[in-house]
Design a protein around this nucleic acid. Sequence first.
DNA 1: CCCATTGGTTGATAAAATCAACTATAGCAA
DNA 2: TTGCTATAGTTGATTTTATCAACCAATGGG
Lengths: 139, 139
Amino acid sequence: MNSSLANTLFALMQNYRVTIREAINAGELGLNAMHVRCLHIIAATTHCTANDIVNQTQRDKAQIARLVKELITLKLIGKDASEHDKRCFILSFTAEGHALYDKLLNAEQHVNEQMCKNLNPQQINDFLDTAQKMIKNMQ
Amino acid sequence: MNSSLANTLFALMQNYRVTIREAINAGELGLNAMHVRCLHIIAATTHCTANDIVNQTQRDKAQIARLVKELITLKLIGKDASEHDKRCFILSFTAEGHALYDKLLNAEQHVNEQMCKNLNPQQINDFLDTAQKMIKNMQ
DNA sequence: CCCATTGGTTGATAAAATCAACTATAGCAA
DNA sequence: TTGCTATAGTTGATTTTATCAACCAATGGG
């Protein structure tokens, strides 16, 4: 069936979204999947700026600006003017942000384990590898 | 990195969404990804009802009702009262619907080919297989 | 110094998803 | 039969997400 790839992608994404939302939203504040992505990027990027998030997520910068604003309102992150470039603000975790991020990693790992149970590392790697190739193919 | 699975899923989905939208929206009417899913389900399901679409997509029935309404407005499908159950309407393609669906399959195949170029059938099967297992794991 | 570019913010709007209430039919059971 | 509950579908209201366009301030090259 021609559409099984599309269907599978949709179903997987839909399930993942719901599961991660339950795992995270459950206890914590009103964070959605995009907030979570932002937090990951901030955690992984040294001197992270809003623009870094835009580039890594490929989303509209307006959307990112608003997500960042929300994260600041939630006191999970803060922004400080960059010394080198006054247009930039460097985003970083607050203490609360760090604490929440740890919980987040935990919840995520839980979901990952659930999602990958009965799959071996080889299968997971192959999966990621193929997905990456598909992504490249579409760019 | 813990989040690479999540990131990959997001990126893949995002790319797919954009690519398929371009491939389809380009020439045709204003169909989005969910319209397309509906058409697929209608095509694949004998005596398809709105409820079949709800079950297969796991979306809110209100959303499906509106998508179906739009497809009817576009004269791509029609609905006829079921003889067995007066609550149900059976959805089916109009002539135009059939014609468009053929074009759609074509466009999709194009996207699929693009997405799967430099992947062999084995890899694609493995990918689908793993994705299906992940979906099951999350239900 | 000028100007095109870049990082970021905001308002407006579109598109997608969700919730709740409601109608009409179905089907079971007392 | 009547009464009750469940199912299929529709609609209105609202929320969430995403996108577009205009804008400001700072940058950096010519």
